[in-house]
Design a protein around this nucleic acid. Sequence first.
DNA 1: TATAGAAATTTGATCGATCAAACGGTCAGA
DNA 2: TCTGACCGTTTGATCGATCAAATTTCTATA
Lengths: 321, 321
Amino acid sequence: MAEKVTIADVARHANVSRQTVSNVLNSPEVVKEETRQRVLAAVEALGYRVNAAARQMRTGRSRLLAVRIETTQDGINVFDRFLHGLTESAERSGYRVLLYTAADDHAEIATIEQLLGEFEPDGFVLTSTHHGDARATWLAGRGLPFVSFGRPWGASEVAHPWVDVDGAAGTEAATRHLLGLGHRRIGFVGWETGSGVGDDRRSGWSRTLAAAGLDADLAAETDGSSAHGQAAARELVDRGATALVCVSDAVALGALQVTPDVVGFDDTPVAAAIGLTSLSQPLAEAAARCVELLADRLAGRPTATHALLTPSLVIRKEPRS
Amino acid sequence: MAEKVTIADVARHANVSRQTVSNVLNSPEVVKEETRQRVLAAVEALGYRVNAAARQMRTGRSRLLAVRIETTQDGINVFDRFLHGLTESAERSGYRVLLYTAADDHAEIATIEQLLGEFEPDGFVLTSTHHGDARATWLAGRGLPFVSFGRPWGASEVAHPWVDVDGAAGTEAATRHLLGLGHRRIGFVGWETGSGVGDDRRSGWSRTLAAAGLDADLAAETDGSSAHGQAAARELVDRGATALVCVSDAVALGALQVTPDVVGFDDTPVAAAIGLTSLSQPLAEAAARCVELLADRLAGRPTATHALLTPSLVIRKEPRS
DNA sequence: TATAGAAATTTGATCGATCAAACGGTCAGA
DNA sequence: TCTGACCGTTTGATCGATCAAATTTCTATA
């Protein structure tokens, strides 16, 4: 039942030593072609697979990437698609994804510390980075390999590899789209000032209006809920807005109760379901880039410092018109 | 930077042997209380953590549970909440969750085989079980510990521990709810016959109507899309239906375009967003039960064979009425 | 043909934890 | 006083892979 094939079994079967088998698998260039073939045949015949624990014990490398799985807050999030992409890309690079949970940044650091002692992940992927992120500082402080999905917001931050989606480029596209529909008074329903992501998304809207010679005066702040989004939209429409760019689909959902020409952000299933035009983040690509940056770093290859991806506008019509 | 504390360091610090440290951690009852305290103090002082690879090498156990991360099909699914619950519960039992992807059952088996050779997960969690599931047969065939989220549909299946949500009980509650609102002609928008989950959900609807002395003749089949849901709903309404119980939120979303009294299934973010009454699966509890069954089995404790949980009806009013 | 040097392969040690067995000390009973 | 049982602890071996160094085999040149 539990047939465990070791490197010694393969060696015996191929009439070579353990080390030669190891070399065939890890440094094929030092092995004579004929021997290589013979060993590979034995590997195949016996169904041999390297034992990760034994390898890790000797090399110190685990081929594991650790990622925190986030709680689905209001249910409208997008993390699962990123995680799927991450797992897929990691597999392609010979890594596996190990999950952990944490209530907050502080707890996450403690968990990372624990993981380092126990499973020794080779790298970490941080998500939902924010201003003054303690996790990035902590990881960078001890030279641990990691990438963040989300750029390091704020000036005093440590430099580290990151991947992010260009929110400003997204809202610029959204604003252009609404301008193209003939709107001249376009509002922005955002989050409270100070959130990096929110400010970034707002900036794309304002700069586009400015470039078109229009005032970017119709902006409102919300706590991110649909209810607040609706209230904010009402206010902006009362002040003359005829269309709205929103910082998220959740907020857009509320805004949609007020006026039809609304663009959301994240292209969540909700947007698709209700026919909301929204900005779609290239999550699979973002995940792939994260793995790429991390894998390059871990392999000692020269790595890019970051990647900024552009979201795409998914134009929909409300189904109930 | 990379300070690695081994069991030998702790032993030296506490003036005992390696084995005593190991005993303190694994079989505290054989160690004298005084020694135990001293060792624990040393563990604390040095920040020692067992190295999972070394332990696994000797014991053969990895404290890893492997789960396949599913692709988000139409985006309206619920897997991420289950996964989060699983990770959390696993941590509580001293396990970590390892992710993998697979295109289909066949590929999944191959991946499991690979994982067994490399990371030697202690157990597996299967999701989306279906009629004649090759994965369950394969795992059971070689005596590997696993639980499925989803019961073994079909009679010829091997017996194995499982956790599932009682779909029939859910649709029964939904049907009762609609009866309570005064409806007498209640239809069911389902999937094609043959899917275990779909048939189960349909049965709750039909048996409740039968119990109320009503005909359960208004049933339609769809491919699960909103578009088909809408068409099917139209047909049922034309045939006299005044309310509809749906097999999923996706289908319900389509049905909602036809008539307001609709109940969905899964309580996805979409349902919450559009004010759709829906059945909520206790996913966190389901995940906890999965871990419980698996952990008991792995610890050699007597285990229950399965758990069937009841979904709860979340009643909402359409926001746009 | 001999031999330096490169190429290919093998040997022994090691990573950190746990198992199995041995060990020393204490105590009850003969 | 001696024997055997018991408790708490220690010692040596082991899991499977890889590193470092040693060894053998091959190749090229004098």
